[in-house]
Design a protein around this nucleic acid. Structure first.
Lengths: 262, 262
DNA sequence: AAATACGGTTCCACTATATGAAACTAAAAT
DNA sequence: ATTTTAGTTTCATATAGTGGAACCGTATTT
């Protein structure tokens, strides 16, 4: 089983993720094959989730898919939990000014999650790339965020990296990365020097609140064909400006009515 | 209590939705105020969800928000459960050809959920947004889908409508709506004659699979200032074409490998 | 046509889990 | 110093989940 599923909800969520993993409508038997829950248990779990509309069941084909309630919740999540709704107008502006791909990412567990994105050319519909996860140790946003993590958290995150060598440039060991993080703190922004995907480069700046806590990161990404680190460098003041504005707005927003008693 | 929450997962999900409802980071006590779960129960539920990363807890402020795991699942849901990924290229084409706002919606419970959207070349401000839900009885997509529901399901859906009179044109009672549904079946598409928002009109066509089951609906929306029902009417063949193509592709896609045994 | 295998669903005795009133702790307000 | 508020833990009890096995309908084989 993929993780320690304490409690019933844990199991239910594991099943949900199991269904999600297939990325297509899936039959009961297929699920049973990939799960070690006993048949009856799995069955009941699926039923519960279906009744709760977290899954939807197509009686024609006898398949389960992720339910719409999930999409609704996600809408709320996107609006609430992440920086996305605040950052949105700023990302638009940044995208317009630079003409390059803009990413908004947050750190979760030990991975980077892309919360929003602006494509270089076409305006993206909502969930297109948002929700994807990526490694922290070899992406601009990941490194930018890690650079400002308190030591205990950093150690925790570092311990969980896969250190897979995606390209020649990948910093595939802790020492090298720690050195890099120092450099990032010194200059205030991170680079991705084709460390994750060949030909893809970026600059990233962390978004931090007043107390210095890392909230997320913004990056501008391009390719070695179209641009260079030097060129991207010229965007840094603009990005930093944007991250600061976002950080400031976050402060107001997170406590809209601390004292409200109505 | 918002709904019959059978089982522990039901309760957990109710809590999740409770948090979602606030649309902002929320304190324990606030949640306690809006829920009738006893303190300890609510507390444990929150803890479980947090441990499962469906919620995230900010120790600085003592607030809960929807967690990233939700966003990840939603990403998968959007890609799998809905018509969205299939419909996407068709929506692009439709949007390009018509220059008007295009909506893709599905019916859930008794409500319409907007699964994807393309803005018009000059976008109008309006309610809908990807992930948002809306009423079924007074939207083009809602009526288009209801028109082709089997009677038992239809009755069920109708019974759950709020019948709020948003505008003068709103069909705010079952009889009127049923008559309208007959008309829709006769002509094969539905109109929204400013029934939900003043000045907003649309034509909608259902997406149905071979067996006639309603999968969703496509609509083209505009305003009375810019267009008219007559003008929108001219889009109908194009929309119908698109829905047919989407429906066809759905068939293939839902069983990518019925016989695969690897 | 009868026999069999398969995918899915239901049963039910058993027990792990969730429950919630109340007690407790820390911090803030008076 | 005392009270209130907000959040956390305890624990006996009850409830909800468990899973082996039996069951059922349909498709496949003989």
């Amino acid at each position: 089983m993929q993780s320690k599923a304490d409690g019933t909800v844990g199991k239910a969520l594991a099943v949900l993720e199991l269904v999600a993993g297939f990325e297509r409508p899936v039959r009961f038997s297929e699920l049973q094959g990939t799960s070690d829950y006993p048949k009856a248990t799995l069955y009941r779990l699926l039923q519960t989730l279906t009744k709760q509309r977290m899954l939807s069941y197509d009686p024609d084909s006898g398949t389960y898919t992720l339910g719409v309630r999930l999409v609704c919740l996600a809408h709320a999540a996107w609006k609430t939990s992440s920086l996305a709704p605040i950052a949105r107008p700023y990302m638009d502006k940044l995208s317009e000014k630079t003409g390059e791909t803009v990413h908004l990412a947050q750190l979760d567990h030990a991975q980077v999650i892309y919360v929003d994105k602006r494509n270089a050319s076409q305006p993206l519909p909502m969930y297109s790339e948002a929700g994807k996860v990526g490694p922290a140790y070899c992406t601009g946003v990941g490194k930018a965020m890690m650079a400002y993590l308190p030591e205990d958290q950093l150690a925790d995150v570092l311990a969980q990296q896969s250190w897979h060598r995606f390209t020649d440039g990948t910093l595939a060991e802790e020492d090298a990365l720690r050195a890099e993080l120092v450099a990032i703190r010194e200059r205030g922004h991170a680079y991705d020097r084709e460390e994750h995907e060949p030909g893809i480069i970026c600059v990233a700046v962390p978004i931090r609140n007043d107390s210095g806590r890392v909230l997320g990161a913004l990056s501008i990404t391009s390719s070695t064909l179209r641009s260079s680190l030097d060129k991207l460098d010229s965007f840094v003041p603009l990005i930093r400006d944007t991250t600061n504005q976002i950080a400031r707005e976050t402060q107001n927003w997170r406590f809209p009515e601390t004292k409200a008693t109505a």
